[in-house]
Amino acid sequence: MDFPFFNGQLITYGFFLLFATVAIASALLVVSVKNIMHSALFLALFLLSVAAMFFIFDADFLGIVQILLYIGGVIVLILFAVMLTSRVSSQLIQQTNEQKFLAIIVCIFLFGMLSYVIFTSGLKGFERPLVEGGITRNVGQLLMTVYVLPFEVASLVLLAALIGAMVIVGKKDE
């Protein structure tokens, strides 16, 4: 029964490799395509493949957050920001990558730093989280019992963000 090539872990690895490849390819396209609108759409694809990786590693709540907030919210804001800039109508928005070499150096350093942190932190890959009934259920349970106060304070933070945004953006209606 314990056939090494047909157990779930290998399939999980396969799916991880698939989505990791999509993520890296789309991330490279984000910074290399000329049209800034296409960049934003490839960013959505990148975020979606990261969400898929969250699902693969049992972090389904994070996956939902990734899809709802990053793809639903952040991409909408980025697309709006692109559409609202005045230069969009004259088609002048083109990705130029003027600081290419500096960016590559920074990326290499960031990669080295993150690798160092990950490999020295003692994290073990492919370990099932020790929660029963799924992460979302546990998050909900804790949010409603132990962390009630932070939960309610979060709504106050959102209220502040809402009113702050309205005051800044909707100025002329005073």
Binding site: L69, V76, L77, F80, G140, S155
Partner: peptide
Amino acid sequence: YYLFAILFVIFDVEIIFLYPWAVV
């Protein structure tokens, strides 16, 4: 339009809190 986009994002964050609540 940007104002409505910001409104949407704020209520989007709120939905994140609704989701685990709905489970339990």
